[in-house]
Structures are given as C-alpha cells and as structure tokens.
Design a protein around this nucleic acid. Structure first.
Length: 542
RNA sequence: GUGCCCAUAGCUCAAUUGGAUAGAGCAACAGCCUUCUAAGCUGUAGGUUAGUGGUUCGAUUCCACUUGGGCAUACCA
C-alpha cells in the first residue's frame, strides 16, 4: 500500500516539482474513518509555498494519476490531510504476496551489501550475567536480527578484558576463598566479590588440586580459573536465550598487536595529547568535550579510553558500514570521549551508533532489589530464565523502549506468567495451526482463487495490517526499536482473534472457507516471522 | 553543582518523530462456550500527558524555568 503511494507521488513529481522539496510521509491514521493511509504533505508545503494547505491538497489530488482498482477514493480532511482509501480487492493481494515469500515476507533489500556489527553484552568475566545484562543481550541480539531483515550482513561481537584491577580483585577473591577452604583464617575485604560462585570456583580448585596452589598469587592460576569458569557460564546462559556471538574480542589483543602503542603515537604526532604529572592526557576539551581526560595513568597503565578507541578503529578496519554499541546507562559518560577521539583521527563517527538502554529494576515482594555484581545481591539471568523461560525473557526485554526503565516484578512474572502478552501471540499462532488441522479433515484447502470474498470488516482490517509488516520491520530496524515489533504483533494477534470470533471457516461456503484458510496461513506466517525476529518460538500447540 | 535519560489511566507501558477525538495490557465491573483452542471475544469505567510559561494553523512530542526520580560526573571498566 505504502509503496504504491510512494510510487504514485514520485510519478507526480514531474507535474508538481515542489513535491521534491519535502519528505513525504505516509502514516496509518489512528482513526479508522480517516482512511487507510494519510499524508500531511500539503500542510508542510503550505509554509514553504505560502498558500492554504487545502488548496495545495486539492492541486496534488488533481495531479495524482491513480488506478481506480487500487485506490477507491482520496479525500481532503481536517486542516489539510490527504486521506487514501484502498479498494477491498487490492487489500486481498497481500495474501498472495505472503504465500510467495513465506518465511521471507517482511525482509527487504534496502541495505543489502552493507556490513554491520552489533557489539553488545560486553560484560567482563567477573561474575554471572545479571538481569540487567539480560536486557542488553536480548535487545542487542534482536537489533542484529532486525538489521539482517533489512539486508545487512551482521556480525555479533562481545568485547571484554581480562586484565586490570577488577580482574585482579576477582583472582584474589578466589584465592582467599581457596585458603579459607584449606582451613586458613582469612579476612575477606568488603570490596571483594562476595558471590557464592567465588566459593564454588575455589572449591573446584581444591577438589581437583588439593593444596597445590597454596602459595600461588592472585594473578596466576586463580584469575585464570575464575575467568574460564565464569566465561563458560556466560556463554551457556546466552545460548539458553538463543544468543550466539560471532566473535569474542579480547582487549588484550590490542596490546599484543601493538595497536595501543601506535594509537598513542598517532595522538602524539597529531598533537592531540600531552603529558602532565606523569600521565598522558587527551585534548578532549579542544575536540568539543568538557574536559581533557587521562589516557595513560602515571603508573604507565592505559585507562579504558585508549583501548576503546583502538578497538573501534579495528571495526573501521574490518570494513563495517554500521557499528552499533549497546550500553547500559551507567556508561553514558564514556562514549563521547571515544567518539571524539575517533573523529579527531579522521574516522566517520556517524557510522557508530551508540545506544543506551536504561536499567532494569527488579521488584520482589514489593521492594526494589538493588543490584551489584560485587555485593552479590542480584538476580542472575539464569535464575530468571529458570523461572519464566526463554520466550518470556526475550519477549519481555524486547517489549519496551530502551529509553524507559524496565520494571520487572519478579513475583508477578512467576505467578502470572500465563497473562504475559507473549502467550497471547503464541496462542494466536497455535490456534491457526489447530484450524489448519481441522480443515484438512474437512477436505478444505487454502485457495488464492477467491480472495475477493474476504470482505467483512474483520477480514479487511486483518489484510490491511498484514501490509504494514514489512514497513514496520524497516522502520523498527532503522530506528533500532525492538518494541515496535511487539506492538505490531499484539495488534495483529488482536485482529486475528476478532476475526476468529466473527468469521467461521468450517460451515461457510467452500470458496469463502478456502479463502479464509489462505488468510489464516498468511497471518500465521507473519506472526511466525515477527516472533522469529524477536527470537521467540511459535508453537503449533498450546 | 554539571551532563545524559525519564515523569502519560489505580499498576506496567505505547503513541509512526510536530498531526485529526492520547491508546494497549494487567487490575475492577457487566456479558459471551452442546459449533474450527475461553491462554479468546464484546461492553463499562478509568486522563488538566508532573507544574508554569513560550514557539504555531496544531504540542505528550520542540524551547525555558520549576518539582520529583534513575545514571554518570576517576590516573575504575
């Protein structure tokens, strides 16, 4: 539908050159009696042309050369909207299109040939993934899916470092627990990792090696063991929610390949850095940011900024057209430095899209659970998956705009998971499977020959909604908004359930019944495709 | 103090980027199963979009200020 309008306006540009001057946007009006699609072009042009919007609208309509079998009528309404009404028979064509493209219906080629990387999760291996990481993981993977649907070739990458202070403390936490198990009296500092998993790693070391490591230091075997165990668990957890990374990028590689030193030299050569009080500073204040920041500490150790910039340079070197960085809001102060650094070195920073998601608040027994990996009072992603399952976890995290805080009431999720909207969608899908099983028994088969019979309000609303799917996928993907897919699917499922209630198949006249079966299959295909973008399963039975 | 995000129905959230009468789900109330899955459908009720100004044909959306929350503001990552 929308494509038809876009083409139609393009053809009209030769008659009305001013149409080229504005971006013409078609939207589905919230009011049914405002047509199937609507544009405010005349109102926007009114300002430029200094004419009344109504007159411009009239002129546009007169010049539009549309096919009467496609568009039934065009109206001017309100302050100057142009409303389009499509014919019932045109609406049914979408069923044929869905039958033709099947599991690929909704995909587009707008960005084919382009390479994208989505960097997400990127949690250092200091402890199990929490519910907060879960939001990052699910949203990141879903954005990657959406980008694939609009043509990108997408790589998923996890960036981490296993050096630095955090990891030293981790290793020493394990060491102390190990000594404790060997009967030594220890003092466990408050700012060490308090979680049970530290004790488990220590216990494993003791069971397998006895007292062998009594005199080892924190940096060696203890840190290595901790990293190996924790990373193994992280990967397993991600797999439970269908997430598989293409690559795990270890910050350490940047040092091994000399990228840190060459970057440092580059900054110096371009006079973008200077030394002060034994540290190296980046001239960020000259690059439009608030303050200069340290990139190498007086101890000689780089701060995270330097490797972060070097890491992003590798992304450019690897030829990505689009680089998504997905962070929690606690990182909101770090990315401007990285982007400024890249820009100063001549990289096109617009290719990097930094997405910040707000935190997940966990409510349990009516209270907010404050989360801290170090203090170990958090709910792990694994526990959440145990409670509600992968589908609910994925759906729930995708359901909301990343700019808003996500309030997760754990008691509600456990107790009332049946009322989660994901079941509503899955139920619609399963219901269709059931219909298809029944109709086969009745000797009825889907047919595209009499789609014109689909003329009731319920059928027509459903058909129009199906048209929107590819547009919605494109829009959602271009704006990195996973929640729009869930909104679309809920609306589609609602229209289907209404159709199901009003329009019977078995018992209707054969041609109508077979057209309706085709419609059911079309709806089921779209639900399944939509759920697959979200990474949620589409069951045949419930 | 300063920067980023947020404040919408009792609760959790939308609103196609400045559009027409602000919408869903849950919770509440009233109905619908001898017929393709009632995990469903229909209806009722629920709002000064935190507040005050401003910008214009038109503001939940943009600007300023105020109030209240979250996250930052390291020679931690």
């Amino acid at each position: 539908m929308k494509n038809y309008l876009i083409e139609l306006f393009k053809k009209t540009e030769t008659k009305l050159s001013y149409l080229k001057e504005v971006d013409i946007v078609f939207t589905v009006p919230s009011q049914k009696d405002h047509g199937d699609y609507s544009t405010n072009a005349a109102m926007i042009l009114a300002k430029k042309l200094k004419q009344k919007p109504q007159e411009i609208a009239k002129e546009i309509i007169n010049c539009l050369d549309f096919d009467k079998s496609v568009i039934e009528k065009v109206e001017i309404a309100g302050p100057g909207f142009i409303n389009f009404y499509f014919t019932k028979s045109f609406n049914t064509l979408i069923v044929k299109e869905i039958f033709q493209h099947k599991e690929n219906f909704g995909r587009s080629k707008k960005y084919s040939g382009k390479k994208a990387m989505v960097e997400f999760v990127s949690a250092n291996p200091t402890g199990p993934l929490t519910v907060g990481h879960g939001r990052n993981a699910v949203v990141g993977d879903t954005i990657a899916n959406m980008l694939e649907w609009i043509g990108y070739s997408v790589d998923r990458e996890y960036y981490f470092n296993n050096a630095g202070r955090q990891m030293r403390v981790l290793g020493d936490s394990v060491r102390l627990r190990y000594l404790e198990l060997l009967g030594q009296k220890i003092e466990f500092p408050d700012d060490y990792y308090q979680g049970e998993y530290i004790k488990e790693i220590a216990a494993k070391l003791k069971n397998e090696n006895g007292e062998k490591y009594l005199n080892e230091n924190a940096e060696g075997i203890f840190k290595q063991a901790a990293e190996k165990e924790i990373f193994g668990d992280i990967i397993k957890t991600l797999e439970r929610i269908q997430i598989r990374m293409k690559n795990f990028y270890n910050e350490h590689v940047l040092y091994e390949e000399g990228k840190i030193n060459s970057l440092l030299a580059e900054f110096k050569k371009k006079d973008l850095s200077y030394e002060n009080e034994g540290a190296v500073w980046l001239k960020l204040s000259e690059l439009g940011n608030e303050n200069d920041k340290v990139i190498v500490k007086s101890t000689g150790e780089p701060t995270y900024r330097l490797p972060d910039i070097a890491y992003h340079i590798t992304k450019y070197e690897r030829g990505y057209d689009l680089m998504i960085d997905l962070f929690g809001s606690d990182h909101n102060a770090t990315y401007p430095d990285v982007l400024a650094g890249l820009r100063a070195l001549g990289y096109d920073a617009d290719k990097v899209k930094v997405l910040i998601h707000q935190f997940v608040t966990i409510m349990e027994k009516g209270e907010v659970v404050k989360m801290s990996t170090r203090k170990a009072n958090y709910i792990t992603l694994d526990e959440l998956i145990d409670e509600v399952g992968s589908d609910v976890v994925r759906y729930f995290f995708n359901m909301r705009s990343i700019t808003s805080h996500l309030n997760f009431d754990l008691d509600l999720a456990k107790k009332q998971s049946d009322e989660n909207p994901v079941f509503y969608l899955q139920y619609a899908h399963a219901r269709i499977s059931s219909i298809l099983r029944m109709t086969v028994d009745e000797g009825l088969n889907p047919s595209l020959d009499n789609l014109n019979l689909l003329s009731t309000k319920e059928e027509q609303n459903l058909l129009k909604k199906l048209f929107e799917f590819p547009e919605d996928v494109l829009y959602s993907a271009e704006n990195y908004e996973t929640h729009r897919i869930t909104i679309y699917l809920e609306e589609l499922a609602a229209l289907f359930h209404r159709f199901y209630t009003e329009c019977r198949i078995i018992g209707s006249e054969k041609n109508l019944a077979e057209a309706r079966i085709a419609l059911c299959i079309a709806v089921q295909t779209v639900i399944k495709n939509g759920l697959s973008i979200l990474g949620v399963s589409a069951p045949e039975k419930m």
